[in-house]
Computed example of a mutant assay.
Amino acid sequence: MQTKIPRHKSIRYDRTINFLQKVLPAPATILDLGVRNPFSEIMESYGYTVYNTNGEDFDFMPEVVKNFKVDAVTSFEVFEHLISPFNILREIECDKLITTVPLKLWFANAYRSSTDMWDRHYHEFEDWQFRWLLEKSGWDIKESEKWVSPVNKIGIRPILRKFTPRYYAVYAEKNIGSLDK
Rank of each mutant, 00 (worst) to 15 (best):
Q129Y: 01
K162C: 14
H121A: 05
T115S: 15
D180I: 15
W132D: 11
D32N: 12
N87V: 03
V50A: 00
K181I: 11
Y13S: 04
V70R: 01
P27N: 10
E80W: 02
M117E: 13
K96H: 15
M61N: 13
P25K: 03
V148P: 05
I11R: 15
T3D: 07
W118N: 06
I30C: 00
I17C: 04
E126S: 10
K4A: 05
K162Y: 00
R120Y: 07
A26S: 15
N67V: 04
Y122R: 13
T115K: 15
L20S: 03
I92Q: 09
D95R: 11
N175Y: 13
V65K: 12
K181G: 04
Q129D: 01
I11A: 05
W118Y: 15
N18L: 06
D59S: 03
R161V: 04
L33T: 11
Y48G: 01
K96T: 12
P165N: 10
E77Q: 14
R36N: 08
E126I: 09
V170K: 00
M117D: 09
S178D: 08
N54F: 08
A26Q: 11
I156A: 14
G34I: 04
N54S: 13
D32P: 00
K142W: 07
W106A: 14
R120D: 02
S40P: 03
S113L: 00
V73E: 09
S113D: 10
P85H: 09
A28P: 12
W132L: 10
D140Q: 06
K174V: 02
C94S: 14
P38Y: 05
M117N: 08
K136C: 13
S137C: 09
L89W: 02
E173C: 12
N54Y: 13
A172Q: 02
G155K: 08
M61I: 14
E44G: 13
K181Y: 09
E77F: 07
Y122K: 07
W118M: 08
V101S: 00
W139H: 04
S10H: 04
A110N: 14
A28N: 08
T29C: 11
N87F: 11
E135R: 12
L31N: 00
E77L: 06
Y122Q: 10
P102R: 10
L179R: 14
S178W: 13
R161A: 05
F58G: 08
N52E: 02
G155D: 05
S10L: 12
E93H: 15
Y167S: 12
N67K: 15
V73T: 10
I141F: 05
I141R: 01
